[in-house]
Design a protein around this nucleic acid. Structure first.
Lengths: 228, 228
DNA sequence: AAGTTCAGTGAACGTTCGTACACTCAAACT
DNA sequence: AGTTTGAGTGTACGAACGTTCACTGAACTT
């Protein structure tokens, strides 16, 4: 029984047109299926890992035949690299938001950053989960892509840190080291938040812990350097 | 062609007895195979992950038939939990060594700790690699076991921190938060060291970075608290 | 010496996997 | 109107998977 268009066909059944517009152009249909594949992979990665994810399982989740997968990606690894790009695109949006928050004090900046971070982990839970998973266990090219992106974040943060009053006397190397520390602390905070139930007390304690740690590092380190 | 004892038989071939003593008792033979399985799994995990590791691949690596695996472990996950125990046993030995180093100053303590850490990552490379991998991507029980062990390390470190002169006025909660920060920084340091070539400049820079970070956190945080 | 135990064997099972191939048929193009 | 294109289909294949089962034979127990 030939049904024609996989994902797309879902829109051809049931109520005629009120629930969702039937995709018109061929490009639209393709993009829709591509998205469905990416979403399905992201969903299936919640409790597995790319390296244990089968092309067939993704296809089944999407509702297409396995071979149709190849129309969009050459392999699971290829799909993974796309998900990395996508995840960090959303993460960059978050960092931009953090920067635009325009805090007047260090405490304000820290509180705002942590708040935005936790919010984004909820909003983009699947993306963060994917990155946290594949960062250490994904296919080598995926791991490298993630490491590269995090390194970029580290450098961007370092540039931001240099603009903080009181950081002027720091050497670029030390700022970079500080940035690395902060990024790693935030990575581990994200991992903790992902484990906690959204809105739970556990989560609030994790956020509070992150704020305290940032204060320890920033306020503390600022004084430490000025002591020398 | 029946060969009898898998791994054990390897010792029955070649030069009679000079290279390795043929295992005598049945318990010895079993233990030897068990070790071989654990080692093989550890080796195969260097570039995969437990969730993508097949019982058959392990058996082949060991040189036994797949079904013989069940004489030692009920599943790959079971094997994984054993590896977690084993890994943290060696890590605990390291922490003990760090504590016994008996440093007189904070700088001395930091330098000694980082040195011992890097040494142990080399000596137990496969174990650390395994933990770093499975920490985020292993089967759920394995992830939980690792998380629990790291939490224990965190608490032990917190107890040690409280003994540092100058930490007396700190609340137990803040010490715990500080400990979490340090442990997470060390976890990420280990991950970096695992990526660097042993003895390379990159590795020395990572060690130097870890020292600087510990100094920032410890010296800095000590002053921060006393300021309030 | 006879009997028991059990780590390791080997064949066989039902699944699932990635991938090759020939196909269809509506949208897009000429 | 006729042709081309290409996303999705259906079948088929060999390989690898976890697990079952009855087995063997050296190490042990009695």
């Amino acid at each position: 029984m030939h049904r024609g268009t996989g994902v797309g066909l879902a829109y051809d059944r049931g109520v005629p047109s009120t629930s969702a517009p039937p995709p018109a152009t061929r490009g639209e249909r393709k993009e829709r299926t591509r998205r469905a594949i990416l979403d399905a992979a992201l969903r299936l990665c919640e409790d597995s890992s790319l390296v244990a994810l089968s092309l067939r399982a993704v296809a089944k989740e999407v509702g297409i035949v396995p071979t149709a997968f190849y129309r969009h990606f050459t392999s699971i690894e290829d799909l993974g690299l796309e998900l990395v790009d996508e995840s960090f695109e959303s993460l960059r949006a978050m960092l931009k938001e953090v920067r635009q928050a325009g805090a007047t004090s260090l405490t304000e900046m820290i509180d705002g950053s942590v708040r935005i971070l936790v919010e984004h982990v909820h909003a983009q839970r699947e993306h963060f989960m994917f990155i946290a998973r594949e960062r250490g266990a994904g296919p080598l090219p995926v791991r490298e892509a993630i490491r590269h992106e995090i390194e970029l974040c580290e450098r961007e943060l370092a540039a931001d840190l240099r603009r903080i009053p009181g950081m002027d006397p720091w050497s670029p190397e030390d700022v970079q080291v500080l940035s690395n520390l902060i990024v790693m602390a935030m990575v581990s905070t994200v991992e903790s938040v992902l484990l906690a139930a959204p809105g739970s007390v556990a989560e609030r304690r994790i956020a509070e812990r992150a704020r305290t740690q940032l204060r320890m590092v920033l306020v503390g380190a600022l004084q430490w350097e000025s002591r020398d």
